[in-house]
Design a protein around this nucleic acid. Structure first.
Length: 558
RNA sequence: GCGCCUGUAGCUCAGUUGGAUAGAGCAGCGGACUUCUAAUCCGCAGGUCCCGUGUUCGAAUCGCGGCAGGCGCGCCA
């Protein structure tokens, strides 16, 4: 709808240029937006004000000139008014809005899809937790964000690949092995020393128990036993991690192992390229990459003095590999404590001539858990932390995902367990789900009275005349554009706010009927009831599609 | 010291990328169920948008300078 307005606006301005009423210039940046204040019409543009400086005329005069040249052969615009310092406010005719409603009902599950990025391939890498322990709340937040982002990007026409990077080549897997081995030894020798930075969590003891049942560790040399513990333990944790994520409704297309990059010789290959391009050098027995030439604070080591590659080395290869796979955009979701890392990764990409804007890194800020009015302190080192699985078991997937997606990802999140556990109005998830269930309930009521959706909504939708009804349609009309905005800004939390707003409008509308029976959706007048059922169906579809993109169920009863 | 993020109602946060009178939930107070689901709705109250300054028709939003909080600055991963 905005597009059609824009077209009318542009052609009006062109006419003014042609007949000399306005000085011909390049069009400045301007917006067409939905005003906050309903008195300002359905849409407003600031174009006259944006033109003012180049025209050297008062915005109001320019607005008048443009409005005089607006032609509207299809009866699209009901009114165009000049307001304030030089806005043009548009009121779109009701018929246009009714068409939106019929469109929603026709498209159903496809409503909100768009072609904005047809075929554009995007790689989203998220969670990427080390398989050395259960996934915690920070990972969960990243999972919810990444998964929802992928769902939305797919909806707006992107070809999305969801990827999980497994850091299985570094020291931490070895450390997991040592931790398990030590716990196993401690069964017989309680004083056996625990590795300095070993994993303290209780799950390590469970792993030690299990592996002792499966393998005869006694028969192995210590070195061999530790390595067996490492391999077996990380596989076990990976399996668990996949299951926890699946239970959280998060799926991946690719599980990329760091060790496979080594096995395929990609680390050496990418270093060779850097050397050929003169982007690396040897110093103090180590190999360095010249990231300082590309915006990093200093050069970085990629191969240590002992001949081992750094984590950074494999990450460079990994990102170059992503690039070679042909994605037009890469999105990484990282914990905020890694923010210092992004500059050097981008710098490394630039040494290979890759535009730094190709890589988009979203940072997840900390999740704090509250219960009984007190913060539950978490420490991964000491093994004191609440896992995603535990939280989900306590409050359910729907609630956890919703709360994770109510805040901007770069704002710290306080998760109040008590609030989310409540099965009443305090729980933000139920508010939206309840609107959906309520609509389903209205349909059951209507069916019991023999009233169903009309075959052609457009023939009776002019019976929708209440302000609340038109407001609902206008909000529903914004859904596709919202999803496109989210795809550009990578801010899925805006969807939760949108759905809450739509649900609020519906609840308000529904309650009109408790005061005045004529305002009930299902009433005496069958045609009116059918028109209102169409409206309710449109709302239900948008709520359903929106919740689906959030990975949250839309219940028919509550 | 340098870098990134944050600062908006008592609390937790939105604010459509520079628009018109800054919003929501929770907490507080007062109302609405013989009714399509009260897991809802209506009303009241609540503001130095951290401070200062600049840019312009116009700033919570952009620039600069501060202040406060969080995080990060390894030949760790």
């Amino acid at each position: 709808m905005k597009l059609e307005l824009d077209r009318a606006l542009k052609s009006a301005v062109q006419k003014c240029f042609d007949n000399g009423r306005l000085k011909e210039t390049v069009l400045p940046d301007y917006v067409i937006e939905v005003p906050n204040n309903p008195d300002h019409g359905h849409f407003a543009t600031n174009l006259p004000m944006a033109l003012a400086s180049s025209q050297k005329r008062r915005p109001i005069e320019i607005a008048k000139t443009i409005v005089d040249h607006l032609s509207d052969s299809e009866g699209f615009i009901e009114r165009a008014e000049i307001a304030g310092p030089g806005f043009i406010n548009f009121v779109v005719s009701s018929g246009q809005w009714y068409q939106v409603l019929s469109g929603i009902i026709t498209l159903r599950d496809d409503y909100g899809k768009s072609e904005m990025a047809t075929g554009e391939e995007v790689l989203v890498e998220f969670v990427s937790a080390n398989p050395t322990g259960p996934i915690h709340l920070g990972h969960g937040r990243g999972a919810a964000l990444g998964d929802t982002l992928c769902r939305i990007l797919s909806f707006t026409g992107h070809k999305v690949v969801r990827e999980f990077y497994i850091n299985d080549a570094g020291l931490q897997i070895r450390l997991l092995g040592e931790s398990i081995y030590c716990r196993w030894r401690q069964f017989s020798e309680p004083g056996y020393p625990f590795p300095e930075n070993g994993y303290q969590g209780g799950y390590v003891k469970s792993l030690a128990n299990e592996i002792a049942e499966e393998f005869d560790l006694d028969s192995l040399q210590q070195e061999e036993a530790v390595s067996r513990c490492a391999d077996w333990g990380s596989e076990k944790m990976l399996t668990e991690l996949k299951r926890d994520l699946a239970d959280f409704r998060v799926q991946f297309d690719v599980w990329q192992k760091e060790s496979d990059l080594y096995a395929a010789g990609l680390i050496e290959a990418s270093q060779e390229i850097l050397r050929e391009k003169g982007q690396s050098y040897e110093k103090d027995g180590a190999l360095w990459i010249k990231t300082s030439l590309h915006g990093d604070d200093k050069d970085r080591v990629i191969r240590k003095g002992d001949g081992q590659y750094t984590y950074f080395a494999s990450d460079i290869s990994y990102h170059m590999e992503k690039w070679k796979r042909g994605f037009s955009k890469a999105i990484n979701i990282w914990g905020a404590d890694h923010h210092g890392y992004v500059r050097r990764v981008k710098a490394a990409l630039k040494t290979n001539g890759i535009d730094e804007n190709w890589l988009n890194v979203l940072f997840i800020q900390l999740v704090k858990l509250w219960k009984g009015g007190e913060e539950i302190k978490m420490s991964k080192r000491a093994g004191h932390y609440v896992t995603l699985k535990e939280l989900v078991e306590e409050v359910g997937v729907d609630a956890v995902r919703f709360v994770f997606l109510t805040k901007s990802h770069d704002s710290p999140l306080d998760f109040d367990i008590d609030l989310v556990k409540k099965h009443d109005s305090d729980n933000p998830v139920y508010y939206v789900q309840y609107a959906h269930a309520r609509i389903c309930s209205v349909f059951r009521k209507a069916a019991s009275e023999g009233i169903t959706l009309p075959p052609r909504t457009d023939q009776i939708s002019d019976r929708l005349t209440l302000d609340e009804e038109m407001a609902l349609i206008r909000v529903m009309a914004e859904f596709p554009a919202l999803l496109e905005d989210i795809s550009r800004s990578l801010e899925p939390h805006r969807l939760t706010y949108y759905l809450t707003e739509l649900a609020a409008l519906f609840h308000k509308y529904f309650n009109l009927g408790s005061k005045i029976p004529e305002n009930r959706i299902v009433g005496e007048d069958v045609t009116l009831s059918q028109a209102r059922l169409s409206l309710a169906e449109g709302i239900r579809i948008v709520l359903h599609n929106g919740l689906d993109l959030l990975g949250i169920h839309a219940p028919e009863r509550m």
